[in-house]
Design a protein around this nucleic acid. Structure first.
Lengths: 145, 145
DNA sequence: CTATATTACATCGTAATGCGATCTTTTGTC
DNA sequence: GACAAAAGATCGCATTACGATGTAATATAG
């Protein structure tokens, strides 16, 4: 793909970029639901397991990872605990902190989702840079594929 | 960045990818609001101007671009019309269709947002592939930067 | 060239979810 | 020890995308 120069070309380029972004996100959401968790829970688990080197995360770290407010994460963690995906324990050194860890179930689900995402992310990374299939047309009011 | 091989490395890599994705999206949302429109309206306008070669789009095309349901787009367009960003006109050949176009105001706002996004997207594209700063820690319950 | 199916969009009600404001508890600093 | 800052928790709320369904216009079968 040529480097866009006119404003019109830049817009088309940005549109293409966002379109692929959205398609990837939808893919990911669908994958999460196919594994029995919400997309948000998937992201939460990914943050717990992959954001730090410890394999655990505090509420604040998760808020940074998810780019959300502190209080939004609290509720998200709460629901994930109820679903048996993560556990919470008070911080050892700093008792204000809450350490979020994955349960066995959480590790299993995240492992499956990680496999599902690996190839797709590779494709998307390339697609973000180079050209893409750029499909056209949809139909009716059906759910986007 | 080395190619991740172990499952742990893959998870960290995916986490890094999603983290950058989210940061970009937040950047974009903030930019949209700074121009007086909602992030959804920005994406809608981008779809109108950049998804097809015509510079206009139908509801279905926008639904494909945004990867949303048809009826979701109807409401989105409705609000954008009320905000004076886009116009709707029945299709010339197919009167079932609705052609969405940008108003002068819409073009101006989208132009500003396009400039704001151009550099950032370039950075993000590289960041999706290569290493990144990978910042740490947040603080309190303040809005993520 | 009517009958039927399909497409494109609209309407309505609903559930999820992230946010703002505020509060409590713990830690840091002077 | 007093005060400030940080880390979470709680509550109410607004936004928004979705599912189900309806209507008008176009395509297709016979």
């Amino acid at each position: 793909m040529a480097i866009p120069t006119s404003n019109q070309e830049i817009m088309r380029d940005l549109a293409w970029f966002r379109y692929n972004l959205r398609r990837f996100v939808r893919f990911s959401e669908k994958a999460a639901r196919s594994c029995g968790v919400t997309p948000q829970q998937h992201q939460l688990m990914l943050g717990v397991a992959g954001f730090t080197e410890r394999g655990t995360a505090t509420i604040s770290e998760l808020a940074e990872f998810l780019q959300e407010r502190n209080n939004s994460v609290v509720g998200l963690v709460e629901r994930a605990v109820e679903s048996g995906l993560v556990t919470r324990q008070p911080g050892a050194t700093d008792r204000r902190q809450v350490i979020v860890s994955l349960t066995a179930k959480g590790r299993e689900v995240l492992g499956n989702l990680t496999q599902l995402h690996h190839d797709e992310v590779s494709r998307v990374r390339v697609g973000f840079l180079t050209g893409w299939d750029w499909p056209r047309r949809s139909a009716g009011n059906r759910k986007p594929a």
